[in-house]
Amino acid sequence: MVARAAREIAPGMVVNLGIGLPTKVVDHLGPDFPVCLHTENGLAGIGPTCTPETADRNLIDAGGAYVSTIPGSAFFDSSVSFALVRSGRLDLTMLGAFEVSQNGDLANWKIPGKFSPGAGGGIELAQKARRVVVLTTHTDRIGNPKLKETCSLPITARGCVARIFTDMGVIDVTDQGFALVEIAEGISLPEIIDATGAPLALPAGDIPTF
């Protein structure tokens, strides 16, 4: 799933990878792959992650991981960092999700009464990146669908999600709702339909696997 999501990144893009699963996408990009990774705390051109021994105490990503620079990296303040996001210079962001609705609403920052640490930069990423894709498990820990007709949790941004990568499949958000693009190896059609909380349109002909 993470390897499949990595193929979403085209050469030349400026990309922000959200905390959690999306961060692992970077492991599937080759060292010579031409891409500029952005992090909200003020770096364009993120290099490989460091060990505690090689870490620079002043150089982290927005998730707090110690990272490095590569030739051509740039540092900037928080205002410039989000100017880049809001002005349309961020080609792609990959985010985690609690829920995604069939019209592309994303909920990923708050579970009232249980989890409310603040949205950080997530709202601007979701609302302003040119393309927003979600990486998530298809269901929550107790098996409830995360892909739903409408979100029940507070919304991060409305109508923002274009594509969802899960452990069960690749699903596009279209004007008609969820549409299955690919299915994971070993998952049956009834299984993914059953685990999805809204109608799932199927592609014509054979469904590609990944």
């Binding site: 303040d77 928080s78 989000f82 949205a119 930069g121």
Partner: peptide, 8 residues
């Protein structure tokens, strides 16, 4: 709580 870039 503020959106991060909006706080900036």
């Amino acid at each position: 709580f503020n959106a991060q870039g909006i706080l900036a």
